[in-house]
């Protein structure tokens, strides 16, 4: 049982589990769902899973958050000592941008969903695909 213990106790294992679960369920949500809105939700999940991995890339064991807190004693030396054990800030900056991009793209997707619903009354991807082809066919032939 020993091997199993230290695997399960390892923080890393759990974070891998959750990110893979989110990515896989997100992809399933996007690819296999009929309903357009469910695809957007799936996209959200996928982005979340990828963000976890990105943050994990910067994590250091027993490191502290990248904020210099005891700013009061402005001794350069112990500030440097503090920053030495800090977590890598660069992936956190990247994730910050990635989350906001994901939010922007999802908002855009949702506005498209609204517009499609207003025009076609349904949000089933197969029906909509056939509707698009039919519109294309109509616009081709009855060009006045």
């Amino acid at each position: 049982m020993m091997i199993w213990d230290d695997i399960f106790l390892e923080v890393d294992f759990w974070i891998n589990i959750v990110s893979i679960a989110l990515i896989v369920i997100g992809i399933y949500g996007i690819v296999f769902s009929q309903h357009l809105l469910r695809m957007v939700f799936g996209l959200g999940l996928l982005e979340a899973g990828v963000n976890i991995l990105l943050v994990k890339a910067g994590y250091q064991k027993e490191a502290i958050a990248p904020i210099v807190t005891q700013a009061s004693d402005t001794m350069m030396s112990n500030i440097l000592a503090a920053t030495a054990q800090m977590v890598d800030p660069v992936p956190q900056a990247m994730v910050l941008t990635a989350i906001v991009i994901a939010a922007g793209v999802q908002a855009l997707a949702l506005s498209l969903v609204i517009r499609i619903y207003k025009k076609y009354g349904t949000l089933d991807s197969h029906v909509l695909f056939l509707a698009m082809e039919r519109d294309r066919h109509l616009s081709l032939n009855q060009k006045d």
Binding site: R115, I116, A131, R136
Partner: peptide, 8 residues
């Protein structure tokens, strides 16, 4: 309508 679907 078609451009919305294609865009989505």
């Amino acid at each position: 309508g078609a451009s919305y679907i294609a865009g989505f």
